[in-house]
């Protein structure tokens, strides 16, 4: 018994996702989704703000995402978050579902480009990851009639017309821009918050 060595802190060497990492990713996923839903519901009341949601979600959820990927520090954390996001927020429309997972994969690639060492790449990956906030809107881009009848049924004529007036042809690009801008602001805030609180506490 005494011969058996206890291996402590395998984290940095171990590249495989352990159960611990899966638990972290799943739990951060829950926080991320709840926060995102609160923001979307608060903004979703008004058509203009509803279209703008990628911006506030990027600003607010960045910290949760960054903590998750920095804590797990392996391939898979962003992907798991992305899959959880796709299943809960974007599963109603298949292209949106696929694109949401693709965004998460791209974010993983960005982290991979930094070889899982560069903190900058970890931070920057969120700008790609937050593109998944555009995915729930793909229904509006590609399948407009269905989106409109849903909006009319749920929110009434006025709301649907409000959204329709805003759904111009360059809307996807505007939303992609919003998502990236929101994520960029969020990344700045989160890196400041992480430095101020989490690194000081020795968690990272």
């Amino acid at each position: 018994m005494a011969k058996k060595e206890i291996t402590v802190s395998t984290e940095s060497r171990d590249k495989k996702l352990r159960t611990k990492d899966l638990i972290f990713a799943g739990a951060f996923g829950a926080i991320y989704i709840v926060l995102m839903l609160i923001v979307v519901m608060a903004f979703g009341m008004v058509p203009v703000l509803y279209i703008l949601t990628p911006l506030p979600v990027g600003i607010l959820c960045a910290t949760v995402y960054e903590l998750c990927v920095l804590k797990v520090h392996k391939f898979g954390a962003a992907l798991i978050l992305g899959v959880l996001f796709a299943v809960t927020a974007s599963s109603g429309y298949l292209p949106g579902f696929v694109l949401a997972i693709a965004a998460a994969l791209l974010a993983e690639l960005v982290i991979m480009a930094g070889k899982y060492k560069s903190k900058k790449m970890f931070l920057l990956s969120y700008i790609v990851f937050n593109l998944n906030m555009v995915c729930p809107f793909t229904n509006l881009y590609f399948n407009r009639a269905s989106f409109m009848s849903m909006a009319t049924e749920y929110y009434g004529e006025d709301y649907a017309n409000g959204v329709a007036a805003l759904a111009v042809s360059w809307l996807p690009f505007a939303q992609i821009g919003l998502a990236m801008a929101g994520a960029a602001i969020g990344v700045l805030i989160s890196s400041a918050l992480i430095r101020k609180h989490f690194e000081k506490a020795g968690i990272m």
């Binding site: 996702l17 159960t19 899966l22 990713a25 799943g26 739990a27 996923g29 829950a30 959880l84």
Partner: peptide, 19 residues
């Protein structure tokens, strides 16, 4: 694979914890 199941199990378990 268990790697796929655990995140989902934890996800659902954690939603009430967040609240």
């Amino acid at each position: 694979p268990i790697r796929m199941i655990v995140p989902f199990a934890v996800f659902f378990r954690f939603l009430p914890t967040v609240a």
